[in-house]
């Protein structure tokens, strides 16, 4: 079952330029869906549409199997969200900030200290939120999203402003929520390594179009398929000619001959042929594109 299903999502801020074009998004129940894209790709607009912060212009959105517009309040009672910068009432303390949301969500009061402890803000006492650092504000925003124990978390760049230790803590916390409490998480980021370490599923958006959607494993498979062999010899030009004459498609890149990935026997055969023709082979290596390169390739298409 899909926790979120968006079909044909289209949005324009002005008549000429579409911000989103026919976006299809399916977030599996119990998954951590990493929503990737460069700045301005349409991630936040998609999330805002899903939460009803923007009026929908085209397409359908259903959450927990129900159309969002018809069941808005019912669905929102089970969704925690953090969109862009965190919402913090600067003149209130962390506890008071969460009390505002506790009343709005009508959840038990004892969730407030629990949520604060979860994000490491339980010791802030009477300190007003305007005195918090950016990282602390971000944590408070995450605490507000977790307060009512939602089944779905929608987090837009949640680690913005956090120090490396904080990033790891929040990542671990999200992973635990997903594993232990079965919370489905939709997390957007422009930072691939962050998503790579956390997500089970990935969606890549660029210029309002969905370029890839699937499991992280399928993206990794794509990465494997895009791998190649790099060969360095005593005479790369002669080696190039030889390999081309044997039905391969070699290219010289950065002082190496690059070939499409091949099975082990085929690599041994290439080596044998090079040596038999009097060429010294200095290096044969399998080169895999990292996810970043795949991401760049996808977004540069």
């Amino acid at each position: 079952m899909h926790t979120i299903e968006a079909i044909g999502l289209t949005h324009h801020f002005s008549k000429e330029i579409p911000v989103l074009e026919n976006i299809e998004m399916r977030v599996r129940e119990g998954s951590i869906y990493g929503f990737l894209g460069p700045n301005g790709a349409g991630k936040t607009t998609t999330l805002r549409l899903m939460l009803g912060l923007l009026r929908k212009q085209g397409g359908e959105i259903s959450i927990f199997g129900k159309p969002f517009e018809k069941h808005r309040t019912e669905l929102l009672s089970n969704i925690g969200s953090l969109i862009e910068s965190p919402t913090v009432y600067g003149h209130l303390t962390a506890t008071e900030n969460l009390t505002v949301w506790q009343k709005a969500y009508r959840c038990p009061k004892n969730r407030i200290p629990e949520a604060l402890r979860l994000v490491g803000l339980h010791g802030t006492g009477i300190k007003k939120a305007h005195q918090f650092s950016l990282g602390m504000k971000q944590r408070l925003g995450i605490a507000a999203a977790l307060l009512h124990q939602p089944s779905l978390l929608v987090l837009d760049e949640p680690t913005n402003g956090l120090d490396p230790g904080g990033i790891i803590e929040i990542r671990e916390m999200l992973r635990n929520l997903n594993r232990e409490e079965g919370v489905t998480i939709l997390i957007s980021s422009h930072l691939l390594p962050e998503i790579e370490k956390l997500a089970t599923d990935v969606g890549i958006i660029h210029r309002g179009k969905m370029l890839f959607q699937g499991s992280l494993a399928s993206l990794l498979l794509r990465q494997h398929q895009a791998s190649r062999i790099a060969i360095e010899t005593s005479d790369n030009a002669a080696a190039l000619q030889l390999l081309a004459g044997n039905g391969l498609d070699p290219r010289i890149e950065a002082g190496c001959i690059n070939l499409a990935a091949a099975e082990k026997p085929a690599i041994a055969d290439i080596n044998r042929k090079l040596v038999q023709h009097g060429l010294d082979v200095y290096r044969i290596a399998t080169v895999e594109d990292d996810l970043e390169t795949i991401f760049m390739n996808l977004t540069n298409q």
């Binding site: 939460l51 929102l76 919402t87 009432y89 709005a104 969500y105």
Partner: peptide, 10 residues
């Protein structure tokens, strides 16, 4: 900057 959070409460 709270409208977005207010409007995502039930």
């Amino acid at each position: 900057n709270a409208w977005k959070q207010v409007h995502t409460t039930p």
